[in-house]
Design a protein around this nucleic acid. Structure first.
Lengths: 204, 204
DNA sequence: TTAGTGTTTAACAAAACTGTTTGCAAATAT
DNA sequence: ATATTTGCAAACAGTTTTGTTAAACACTAA
């Protein structure tokens, strides 16, 4: 009976934590093993190398990054640009709140390692081009109707992502000298401000 | 005669490169010494520890991050908000173009190490509150004149910085599959798009 | 010339880290 | 019941990395 592959799972979990907190170079297999409560020989037994363990963590995390975009594309089938923007920003904020270190982790590993970059691009590309197409057609419709000013889909997407992501990049620094409620309020204010800022920016 | 403190400088230069490219954990003192063309004993002779060498690099780089803000505050004494925004975005783009890895380096070290965070906040705070005050009064004047919609200074500052910084975060990924001219064009387009996006967003 | 100061090298030491081997105990299959 | 596989720990091995030491070297000033 023993423990139905418990250790294998514990090691992976500990590895996720460690890699996300410290990056590939900062993470140590000994520390991961200790965090998982196993000898470090076990880590090598199940995952053989640090590199291999990292790849497992990394590709899972890249999948996670794409999640909110997939969700948006599946749920919001035929809506206006404004509703899509509102829905997405809200969705993305929830996601980033729940995974505050995720984006920075993936970004850094992508920047510092060409192999990771390929893995990430391969995983992200299909969803992103799907998103691009959707945004593109939403923009076209609104421009024709005279509801918004002309803007390139890539620029709009970058703008929205920028404002969302940097919010959670500065969040730990801003929240450091705040009460919890204040910090929560900051996020809330930032979310509504992002929405109105974007919507105002694309008005004719 | 030897070489008038040349090695000390060479080591510091090599350390800047290495730390910025690979971060504290990824950087190796042996690699820094090799890059500087000296034995690694020399590195310890001049800087004693990796940590110490890092601190020297880090605080210099934090100073550099604040540079464009100081420049803006000194040069643009009494101007309109629109001109300030235009000037700053242009200035900031030049700066980020010249130091593409700087922000990410400082950010990561700040996030991963509380001591670095204190160093950075201490160095950045005065300039930032100066900037805040200036933006605040510029906004007030324009709001009173009915030229723009009401927006909190912090939100506007965050928005501008977000759009600028993320441009250079995605730049290496986007430029990877582009000709040089195309990549330069992307930056140029992004700069003017950022300006008009911001200005449009704060219109009444 | 010599004593002194700062610079450089080579060799060494210690620790941290990744990965391997061995051997054993429990579980599963034959 | 016996053989085989699987899970696990302890000890070991090799490498990388940081940091130290001692001696050589170069230059300056007494």
């Amino acid at each position: 009976m023993a423990n139905e592959n418990n250790n294998e799972r514990l090691i992976l979990q500990a590895a996720e934590e460690e890699f996300i907190q410290k990056g590939y170079n900062g993470a140590k297999t000994t520390s991961i093993a200790a965090k998982a409560g196993v000898t470090h020989a076990m880590l090598h037994y199940y995952y053989r190398t640090k590199e291999n363990l990292f790849q497992k963590v990394f590709s899972a995390k890249v999948q996670q990054v794409v999640q909110p975009f997939k969700e948006l594309l599946e749920n919001d089938k035929s809506i206006t640009l404004e509703k899509a923007i509102r829905d997405f920003i809200h969705l993305h904020f929830s996601f980033l709140k729940a995974n505050p270190l995720l984006i920075n982790f993936v970004y850094n590993e992508v920047i510092s390692n060409p192999t990771n970059r390929k893995v990430a691009i391969k995983a992200i590309y299909p969803t992103m081009s799907h998103l691009y197409a959707r945004v593109s057609s939403l923009i076209n419709a609104e421009v024709e109707a005279g509801n918004i000013t002309k803007i390139k889909p890539l620029q709009l997407i970058l703008n929205i992502l920028s404002l969302n992501i940097t919010t959670f990049m500065v969040y730990p620094l801003i929240a450091e000298n705040m009460q919890q409620e204040q910090a929560a309020l900051f996020l809330q204010e930032r979310e509504s401000c992002n929405i109105s800022f974007i919507l105002n920016a694309i008005k004719p």
